[in-house]
Design a binder for these strands. Structure first.
Length: 259
DNA sequence: CAATCGTCCTGCGGGC
DNA sequence: TGCCCGCAGGACGATT
């Protein structure tokens, strides 16, 4: 499940291989996943590739943007022939190709105008890695009665954390995911803030986490080596890890390390 | 306001 | 061995 570090990794790799290239033709194989209007756009060059939260954006000519969300299993492949999961194929002027693939068909790619972006992206909270502690604290203040882990995954509060990194940051901060936001002491909140910063940075450095479907363009990420609780039986201190549902989502945590 | 539930969709694992 | 069933999960809307 691509979260911020995985999307950031993919964005960086896409920049290396397709930024600046001219799109000759787009073939859409799954109309549910990919907006058919994309095939009708005038021939364009990929000017820039950016990320906002878990969204990935291809900025084309004429202020057109391909707004992409990978959800659970969306992924790109460069220079490989389409597979049964390919939703769209981008053919470039130089003869190379990029495929957008989606196994579970939850991912989306749509065409929007640059001008529409502020409005479309306005519900999103700040970028975790560009967010000061003061802003982080302010964001949490609006959710004092809510469950902490669910709040970390709420894209309107902070944009980019998903199920894996919410659990990992809480472990590192030593905080029980069942806690309510308002019960955090100042010291705990600071520790959580710093955990988010360091885990996301490290995960990006490691090329993301590869669990099941996620592969970046260059293959597997390496952060799964550093996971402390997610899908683990023991935490790094060899305590047994619990699993429970929080907000309907599987949650791993250590009863001894997280209070 | 917060939590829960249903929906979308497919692969996979458990059970028999 | 093979089939069927149910689960998982990000976002979002509807309901409790």
């Amino acid at each position: 499940m691509p979260e911020l570090p995985e999307v950031e990794t993919i964005v960086r790799q896409l920049r290396d291989v397709v930024q600046g290239k001219s799109i000759k033709a787009v073939k859409i194989l799954d109309k549910k996943v990919v907006d058919v209007r994309i095939a009708a756009l005038p021939p364009s060059t990929i000017q820039r590739i950016t990320r906002r939260g878990k969204y990935l954006l291809f900025h084309l000519d004429n202020n057109n943007v391909l707004l992409t969300h990978l959800r659970m299993s969306g992924h790109f492949q460069y220079g490989k022939e389409p597979s049964r999961y390919t939703a769209a194929v981008f053919h470039f002027q130089d003869g190379t190709l990029l495929t957008f693939n989606e196994i579970r068909r939850f991912g989306r790619m749509k065409a929007v105008k640059e001008k529409q972006l502020p409005k479309i992206l306005s519900p999103l909270g700040p970028e975790p890695l560009e967010c000061s502690y003061t802003v982080f604290k302010q964001r949490l203040e609006k959710k004092t009665k809510s469950n902490l882990k669910t709040t970390l995954m709420d894209q309107r509060v902070l944009a980019g954390l998903g199920n894996i990194y919410a659990q990992e940051t809480l472990y590192r901060a030593g905080i029980n995911p069942q806690r309510t936001v308002g019960t955090l002491q100042e010291g705990e909140r600071k520790k959580l803030y710093h955990s988010i910063q360091s885990i996301l940075r490290r995960a990006i450095r490691q090329g993301g986490t590869t669990i099941e479907n996620y592969t970046s363009l260059e293959g597997a990420g390496r952060f799964q080596r550093f996971l402390a609780v997610y899908e683990k039986e023991q935490c790094p201190k060899k305590h047994s890890v619990q699993k429970m549902k929080i907000g309907g989502r599987g949650t791993y945590w250590c009863q001894k390390c997280q209070k």
